[in-house]
Design a protein around this nucleic acid. Sequence first.
DNA 1: ACTCAGCCCCAACCGATCGTTGTGGCTCGC
DNA 2: GCGAGCCACAACGATCGGTTGGGGCTGAGT
Lengths: 320, 320
Amino acid sequence: MDTEAVRSFVRAAESGQFQHAADELGVTQQAVSKRIAALERELEVRLFTRTARGVELTLDGQVFLPHARSIVADVERAVAAVRPGSRALRIDVLGFRSGQAIVLHDYWRSHPEIDLDVVTLKAGDPQVAVAAVRAGDVDASFRSVTDPATLPPDVEVIHVLDFPLELLVGPRHPLASARTLTPARLRRHRIWVPGIAPRSEWAEFYDQLATAFDLRIDGAGPNFGVEALLDALAESADVATLVGSRDRLVWPASHGLRRIPIANPTIAYPQSLILPRTNPHPRLRAIIDYFGSLAPLPEPAWLPSWATPRTSSGNVGGRR
Amino acid sequence: MDTEAVRSFVRAAESGQFQHAADELGVTQQAVSKRIAALERELEVRLFTRTARGVELTLDGQVFLPHARSIVADVERAVAAVRPGSRALRIDVLGFRSGQAIVLHDYWRSHPEIDLDVVTLKAGDPQVAVAAVRAGDVDASFRSVTDPATLPPDVEVIHVLDFPLELLVGPRHPLASARTLTPARLRRHRIWVPGIAPRSEWAEFYDQLATAFDLRIDGAGPNFGVEALLDALAESADVATLVGSRDRLVWPASHGLRRIPIANPTIAYPQSLILPRTNPHPRLRAIIDYFGSLAPLPEPAWLPSWATPRTSSGNVGGRR
DNA sequence: ACTCAGCCCCAACCGATCGTTGTGGCTCGC
DNA sequence: GCGAGCCACAACGATCGGTTGGGGCTGAGT
């Protein structure tokens, strides 16, 4: 099916004349006639009754019209989403199930009129994200930035959210029945966070966390994927892991797993948005403001050394 | 834009290989390659990065993918809506603003998974509706039927709803400030219902109504459309009209018009569905049941002689 | 009553496009 | 280093999409 034909159909249905539709579309009336005929052939249905003064929708045409409008609108949105120049707001996240994606989805649900695209640059390396932002491939990248000074001067870093961590344990783990935990209670329990690259922000974060609360955090070992980790946790009586409270995992309930909040202090992982310093996408500001309006971290909170607790209005817009 | 190209894009994105997508679509790999290239040319954007082992979505491709899926789904729904054989449920109403259309819209909102199309056969003549139902052009027609015996035996008539009437008056009318009215209060006030064809169900209805309550109902005069009627009502100090409580008019508030419910007894206009006796659309039953579940008319109620008050389960499925 | 204007469809033509077959280049894995 | 498995490019025939030209139909105006 040719979407130009669908567009012609909509125009013709609106004006009741092929001629008029043809003029609007900049083609001859015969072309419109052929397009409609092709559409009718494909649908095996007559869409218009031809009269001496123009055309009139048949019943089937009447039914098809709203669908046709929907198709046209859909195509236009799709084109606008990728065509250079008129591109929708595009934000890079670490994964579609990550808390980053979840909060963006929440934002979109409360502002459905915003054309927002969420993508993942398949790279752990922050330099890739920075390069994509600078090149304009994405409008902003959701990352954790330990040291803004290492970034080039033409990107801006805004600390937008802190994600509290929760303990994820299987049913046989000694802490499984706790309603809530303090970091001190985690001492001497083995915490397994596979797949952490050395010298990454996560490695640094867990390093500081282990030191601060005297924890046993094990980042070694190969990463066989989330599924394997969950399976291992479900079986084990002594291994736990940490997850962001807003991360969406794959049906944790089906493994009998439990998520246990951590408080006093709350342990949070700080997240920033990397965006170009010049000509950032105008819609970005609204999203950053939205993040600012969300509930702040419960007190007391622990954050790694490179972050200060996000205040509702303090550092928005400034480089940290 | 060719929707086949979009479909190819989705398949290729899913399998990561043009070859595989081509096999599924029953064309050669070269054809898929060309289709994608055409898409990329049209969007002025690269959708895939070509690798030795297949293809991988670019950022733009990643953004385009959900839109593409949406387009494909949209097209499929549009085709299914009109293609003979696999057609969505289609119900004829008197007008898109009529109470009939409103209740169908309510039904659709509570069952959005049902593909439901609402159309209007542009004819007052019930015979046209009956013919359309018999021919299968529509699955059911929403009409008021005074005498089912006059209809051919292969259609079924089910009394599904009664629409209470309200008085519509301008601000200067003596009854304008009433909160509610009885039919007796309408006596000696002029009620104007233009555009009623002689010997139509509406004519018969108003005839019986006028006799029953000794009312002055004036059905004569040319009908210049709803707008003109509303304008006239807004100006006049002595003319009123009757409208269905669920009919949606064109911003009656903007004319300073008031709708005043009528009770003791409630005056209701009975509505039936005409459907084929053999092989009615299976989804129709659910809609009829939904109508049956709606609140019944408030008591006491007046109905024309050809109708009996609808009971919640009594006459559903039977010919009346 | 006749013409004329304004629709639409059909026919003929032409260039662009789509699909095919045949080839070549590229990168993995053996 | 070789072959398997991809994708892109080239050439070719069929089809399609557009245009011009012409004809039929209907309703308005003279």
